[in-house]
Design a protein around this nucleic acid. Sequence first.
DNA 1: GTCTTTCAGGTCTAGACAGCATGTC
DNA 2: CTAGACCTGAAAGAC
Length: 808
Amino acid sequence: MKPTELTGLPAGVGEHLEGEGVEALYPPQAEAVEAGVTDGENVVAAVPTASGKTLIAELAMLSAVERGGTALYIVPLRALASEKKTEFERWEEYGVTVGVSTGNYESDGEWLGSRDIVVATSEKVDSLVRNGASWIDDLSCVVSDEVHLVDDRNRGPTLEVTLAKLRRLNHDLQTVALSATVGNAPEIADWLDAELVDSDWRPIDLKTGVHFGNAINFADGSQREVSVDSGGKQTPALVDDTLDEGGSSLVFVNSRRNAESAASRLGGVTSEHLTDEERGELRELATAIRDVSDTATSDDLAECVAKGAAFHHAGLSSEHRDLVEGAFRDRLIKVIAATPTLAAGVNTPSRRVIVRDWRRYDPEFGGMKPLDTLEVHQMMGRAGRPGLDPYGEAVLLASNNDTKEELFERYVNGEPEPVRSKLAAEPALRTHLLATVASGFANTREDLLEFLDNTLYAVQSAGNAQLETVTDTVLDYLEANEFVEREGDTITATEIGHTVSRLYLDPMSAAEIIDGLRDAAGETGRDRQYGSRGGLDRDADADADESAGFTTANDLLDEGALENGDGEEKDEQSAEAEEADADADGTDDVSALGLYHLVSRTPDMYQLYLKSGDRDEYEEVLFERETELLGRTPLEYDDVAFEEWLSALKTARMLEDWASEVDEDRIAERYEVGPGDIRGKVDTAEWLLNAAERLAGELDLPNVVSVREAKKRVEDGVREELLDLTSVRGVGRKRARRLFEAGIESRADLREADKPVVLGALRGQKTAETVLENVGREDPSMEGVVADSDAKRAGREEAGGQASLGDF
DNA sequence: GTCTTTCAGGTCTAGACAGCATGTC
DNA sequence: CTAGACCTGAAAGAC
């Protein structure tokens, strides 16, 4: 079928596709058309990566738009949202408008309603539904990309519930779901009342095999000799072999450290194959990478990149990732050693994919657990660049014959696992039941259960009472924490319950925060029978059996969360930060550390890992600063709770360092994290503190001011005294500190200050003018002003590239 | 005596969504 | 019930 033969699309689309080189639809695409994607029919397409899934989605959305409707495209990752948006924007010349909505990149709410196609993450869509975005009701088509992720413990239930809600809001909604090939595609189609397109077809051949000894043994029976040198290392030999043919490789490993060390070793291989021109370009790229962030991670990456290799994992900042991915696509970087980030993320195809580690540490499992077949298939699916490579190769590594057999059985010839709903777990239901009640989808227990009937879980567990049991446990929990009220059969969300739902908080996080703030305010919480934790799981866990034995958490309050005092052994900066807090007036003051700790121990914060040596260190920190923390320290023999408390303390102290202007590289070194991790924690803390501020405001708690200040400090990464300055546009943590040191301590000062001093602190003339303009100075011109040298000197001490932590 | 290799023992372990209101060096 | 790659430091070996 030719694209121009398609009907129901906006004029010119078929021709455009032909212009892109689409002469005929791929078989799965044609199948989808036959199944009615362009006629508003529900379709589930379970096809391999890179076999034209996106076009199926585009056909559905464009035809929906042509019929006068609007479409929503749900992605699992923010990075994917912007990638897809750019891709869809090529239809704008045919009058189709595109918008994106994710947590950090939001086109204004109502404006989105005017778009024909909106790309959003599943959480964002959920949030839009919770907040009653009007245009959601008017959708005519929803596409869910990577639906197999409903299997994910943490985020799967959100997608599942969101799809159920969208379909409930609009019974005529066309649902198109794109999935990797999975074990139970028919079941998913059944859930969504959709036609199934299930296919293994690929546009370019994928040869999968196992390397053992001196050859790759492919599934088709062929062999390729790749002899391993004296060192016995398979990976470098395979990378070298690909390079001989002018191809690049992607190596998947199971830890960040492995990714980094593999990249550094592979640099030795790639550097042998570079042209002088490439060397030059790589040197430039390395410089760009160093400029992103002044951390060890950044340096290490730059060093590898100069040799044509790179590593890729979540410790990298988004700028790092973009640079590496881009250069790999441009074939400048010859090999990337990556953790699974890259398998799920944006499109980075490669001639050869090497799955080096096929087992990964899993604490629940108690050891190294084999990766799911589905996950390995996702990695292998990155092999082969359409239009560039004749075929792709995906290779697993075996060091002995038994392993070789096992790998063949499990991954090369093995079927991917079926997708299983993880909805019947407390953490998932906690948040989704509250949201479902709060946004009016259900107001009795029966309604709720009936609503849940629209989920994949219901399809998969007919006759299983677990969902019902967990629902009851969770309803009890929500009622005990005053998020819902029950009167007879009727369940309604309380005012605070509504807020929690709209803020997109896990109710357990909200309860923890409320308890903590009440505790600090000296309220005993006498109306509250139950503590925040209760018998509920902190983390997602579908199959654990739960007990509903709530414990009282809140009977006593700590005295004086205020006593800061003794800073003897503390890091200078922390001590100063503390002092600043103590200086602030008001009796309900809570230290920033206390608040950071509070949000860090919430299930919405992914805490820093407590390394073995850390335990002693943080026990000491706890001893020194316990009075600042909100709520009671768990007893030491309660190992799990105590350990969690300590790692939250570690996280909190990192945030405190950040909010005390400690340099990024020092933080990275001190907490053994990458720039990406720092950004992530800061981001989450900002979000949670904003929620805390709202909750405190609504409950009329007296510590709103402290919360707001702690939030602003993390936001800007500065101590209290700079907050006034950083509120000026164009002034961040570094410039603010330099101004402060030059004696300019406030916006008012800045308006009055001597221009030479300002120029000295801010360096560039243009920068200084812009800043003065932003602060509202009458005459911002710096024309002919000569920088004051004292200010310059003060400024220089602070010099040292601070990362730009802005997104994108 | 000094540098290098080897080996035993200990350590450490993937990822990343959301609110709100706009802008770092 | 379950691992394995990497690092560190000490001991052994090479010159």
